[in-house]
């Protein structure tokens, strides 16, 4: 199954979103990186890198969703450092996009299938 990474400035935002996703697709691996080092609002490279590395260790790839600008920049760097072809950063709405991705992942769709669905729905 394709893993999902949620990157946000707010720990509560990703916590809530993870809860929402888990309710429908319990078995999909969802990794979160919310807030800065001490859990305040912000983004933190080490935290995001750890989440990306964890998601990249799966066999079927991972999709990384983010909320705002610096989350995107840090996630881009983390993916470059991970040097994994199968981890993709996507610029779709974090709630609806990750929900769609989680559902498709849970029914066994591939990374490319999910990317195509996301583009069709939100592109």
């Amino acid at each position: 199954m394709v893993n999902i990474v949620l990157v946000s400035h707010s720990p509560k935002l990703v916590e809530g979103l993870e809860e929402l996703l888990k309710q429908v697709v319990g078995q999909v691996s969802i990794v979160t990186a919310g807030g800065d080092e001490d859990g305040s609002i912000g983004t933190h490279f080490d935290k995001i890198q750890a989440a990306v590395e964890e998601a990249a260790s799966g066999d079927d790839g991972a999709l990384v969703f983010y909320d705002l600008g610096s989350a995107k920049m840090n996630a881009e760097m983390a993916i470059e450092v991970a040097e994994s072809e199968s981890v993709r950063l996507v610029s779709y709405p974090i709630v609806e996009g990750s929900y769609l991705a989680a559902v498709e992942s849970s029914i066994g769709n591939s990374l490319d299938d999910i990317l195509a669905s996301l583009e069709k729905e939100f592109g």
Partner: peptide
Amino acid sequence: VMSKVGGASGPLYGT
């Protein structure tokens, strides 16, 4: 800088 600054400044100044 990349790992300790945070926010957008971490990636930008780090780069």
